[in-house]
């Protein structure tokens, strides 16, 4: 033992330091990264279904490592890339000197991100069909549908978007484990998202926020110059964009646009709009 000790003792500080590194590496948040799973997308998928898949893709493929979803921040959020919240409303007419409508603009932005750069942002985005996102054509359509839902109602379907030319589509979408189901029951959502804490569906019943009754919604949408559906989407996704007078400012949570899936948003807006359209 005495013969071994002189050889081992000098190692103790080294072992302590390495032990600290191992402890620290195990103390910080632990995440195993798995390659993104290809999404199963039917050619007959509705825009709302596509948007729901698109939202999953945007989260899983790393889009939000640069882009933000900051309601009310306009094009310039706090990220390396432009803010995506409200993009559908902002780019409804495409861009000057480029694609003249939203879908074409989004397709170009995904296939050839450097073709048009938002002022103040560097040309750092890789084509979405290449590494690392490697979107298939159907996945590109789904992402476009999701981006459409950020400020507008998604309308795009598989086949509406041109396939890329000169850009290699990395692989075809394939069957995979389906995402866990989320509730699209509007009444349940009204409860689970705590909407009832501030809003009432009863005519004339005012809580912290305005009542979501027919007269109130009609009046507010008209005042904003929108139809009821568009007004509701904006109010949920970007509540700061327009706040009704007589109610406290900045109370409505800003993150419903990211907490709700596109399908949920679609169902919820339809539900509330039906309330507003009641005679």
């Amino acid at each position: 033992m005495n013969q071994v000790l002189p050889y081992v003792t000098p190692l103790i500080p080294a072992f302590v330091v390495i032990g600290f590194f191992v402890w620290f590496a195990n103390w910080i948040p632990q995440t195993r990264w798995q390659p993104p799973q290809a999404q199963e997308i039917s050619a007959a998928a509705t825009p709302a279904e596509l948007a729901q898949v698109g939202q999953t893709i945007v989260r899983q493929r790393g889009c939000l490592a640069c882009h933000t979803l900051e309601p009310g921040a306009g094009v310039k959020g706090g990220g390396r890339g432009p803010n995506l919240s409200g993009i559908a409303a902002r780019r409804a007419q495409g861009v000057k000197g480029g694609p003249g409508n939203l879908v074409e603009y989004l397709a170009q932005a995904l296939y050839e991100p450097g073709a048009y750069l938002v002022e103040g942002y560097a040309n750092i985005m890789p084509p979405s069909t290449g590494a690392p996102a490697s979107l298939s054509y159907e996945e590109v359509v789904a992402v476009i549908a999701y981006l459409q839902s950020l400020g507008r109602t998604p309308t795009v379907k598989v086949g509406d978007v041109p396939k890329p030319t000169g850009v290699r589509v990395a692989r075809e979408a394939k069957a995979t484990t389906p995402e866990p189901a989320v509730s699209t029951d509007p009444a349940a959502m009204f409860s689970s998202f705590n909407c009832g804490d501030c809003h009432s569906l009863k005519t004339g019943e005012v809580k912290l926020g305005p009542a979501l009754d027919a007269p109130g919604l009609k009046q507010a949408a008209a005042g904003r110059g929108m139809n009821i559906e568009a007004y509701l989407i904006e109010s949920i996704v970007d509540p700061k964009a327009y706040e009704r007078k007589g109610f406290p400012s900045g109370v409505m949570p800003q993150d419903y646009g990211t907490r709700m899936t596109a399908a949920q948003l679609d169902a919820f807006v339809r539900y509330l709009a039906a309330q507003g359209k009641r005679p």
Partner: peptide
Amino acid sequence: LNWHVFGIMQDTSPGAGLPSLGEVA
């Protein structure tokens, strides 16, 4: 990430993911 050659050849093996940093350490 999950690329043998980035952008050219994907690693589709079962071990294509990344372990947690604790496991790495």
